[in-house]
């Protein structure tokens, strides 16, 4: 493992986006950062800015209004990036499934890498999901590099 890959695993910066749910999972994510759960021992930092973030935590079902916003945010995140759907609503649509004004689950809008079920999710689950996401970051980067090599070879 190269130094950069190691540090990528050690320093996941997070942007957390609420797309219009009940905010229950929001509060649980914030609880992760508090002394009791202390996600920052994994190097997690909440940036509030997609341009600095590696991992996007999405909470809540995606409302139609939020669809464009969430794609914009996703596009502004630099590669490699991981999207984590936090809570039942983001993973499947939850109790909003089939409701008007909704796209349903998050994976219909942007590609999702990790699903964390639960209503609300427990902070332990969020941390577990984050750690799962860390390995995916490096995998994704390797894939991107391979594709670049391929397209170069093709050219």
């Amino acid at each position: 493992m190269s130094l950069i890959e190691l540090s990528r695993k050690k320093s996941p910066w997070v942007i957390h986006v609420g797309t219009g749910g009940c905010n229950g999972c929001d509060l649980e994510i914030l609880a992760c950062l508090t002394p009791r759960f202390d996600a920052s021992r994994f190097g997690v930092m909440s940036t509030g800015n997609p341009k600095h973030a590696d991992i996007m935590l999405v909470v809540g079902p995606v409302t139609l209004k939020y669809k464009e916003i969430i794609t914009n945010l996703y596009n502004q995140m630099p590669d490699p990036k991981v999207v984590i759907a936090v809570g039942t609503c983001a993973s499947t649509g939850g109790i909003y499934q089939g409701c008007y004004g909704h796209c349903g689950s998050l994976d219909k809008v942007v590609p999702v890498d990790v699903y964390i079920p639960g209503c609300n999710v427990r902070p332990e689950a969020v941390i577990d999901g984050l750690v799962l996401g860390l390995d995916i970051l490096n995998e994704k980067e390797r894939k991107i590099l391979e594709e670049k090599k391929k397209s170069k070879g093709a050219a």
Binding site: N49, P50, K51, E68, I69, I70, N72, L73, N75, Q76
Partner: peptide, 10 residues
């Protein structure tokens, strides 16, 4: 090239 961050509103 990307647009500036405007809370995703574009």
């Amino acid at each position: 090239l990307t647009p500036t961050y405007s809370c995703g509103t574009g």
